[in-house]
Computed example of a mutant assay.
Amino acid sequence: MSAEEQDAVIAALTPVVDGIVATLGSFCEVVVHDFRRPENSVVAIAGSVTGRAVGGSMSEIGMGLLARGDEATDELNYVTRTPSGKLLKSSTMLLRDPSGTVFGALCVNVDITAVNQAHALIGELAGVTGATAVPTTTFGNDIDSVVDAIVDSHQLRQNKQWSELSRDERLGLFRSLDEQGVFAVRGAAQHVAERLGISRASAYNYLARARNGPEGSVPDGSAPTRTDQDGVHS
Rank of each mutant, 00 (worst) to 15 (best):
A44W: 05
G172V: 03
D7Q: 14
G55Q: 06
I45R: 01
G213R: 02
G51R: 07
S84R: 10
H33T: 02
V31E: 01
S99M: 06
V128E: 15
N116Q: 14
T129W: 08
A67Y: 08
Q155Y: 11
E75Y: 05
P214C: 02
L76R: 15
T227F: 07
R68P: 00
D148P: 09
G123D: 15
H233T: 14
G85W: 02
G221S: 11
D34M: 04
D148F: 10
A188E: 10
D168M: 09
G231M: 08
F103H: 04
L177D: 11
G221D: 11
I150R: 07
S84N: 09
I122H: 11
V108D: 00
R200A: 11
F103T: 06
Q6N: 07
Q117F: 07
T227S: 08
V17P: 00
D152I: 06
D74M: 06
L171D: 00
T23A: 10
I122N: 13
T50R: 08
S234M: 05
P219L: 00
G181N: 09
E194F: 03
T101A: 06
A118H: 13
T23K: 11
N40Q: 14
A120C: 12
G55N: 08
N40G: 02
R200N: 14
P224T: 00
S202R: 15
V17L: 04
T80M: 08
D70L: 04
L171I: 13
L173E: 01
G172T: 01
L156Y: 05
V192E: 12
V30T: 07
I20G: 01
V102K: 13
G62L: 03
S166F: 00
R81H: 04
D178N: 14
S217W: 05
K86C: 00
P38E: 04
L87C: 08
V32K: 08
V218Y: 11
D111M: 07
I45N: 01
V192N: 09
A72G: 08
P224Y: 05
G47P: 09
E5A: 14
I112W: 03
T73Y: 02
S84A: 12
T136L: 10
H191W: 13
S41G: 04
S99I: 02
I61M: 12
M1H: 13
N159I: 00
G56Y: 09
V17K: 04
E124G: 12
A126L: 12
D148L: 09
H33A: 03
L125M: 11
D142E: 14
H33V: 02
T101D: 04
G69L: 07
S145N: 13
V115E: 13
V49Y: 03
L87I: 15
S90N: 13
L121E: 13
V147Y: 14
N159G: 03
Y206D: 03
G213F: 02
S163E: 14
V9W: 08
D18M: 03
I143K: 05
L13D: 04
M63Q: 11
N109E: 01
V185L: 10
P219R: 06
L95P: 01
G130K: 15
V110S: 03
Q180A: 10
G231C: 05
K89R: 14
G25M: 04
G100V: 08
A131C: 05
V54P: 07
S26D: 12
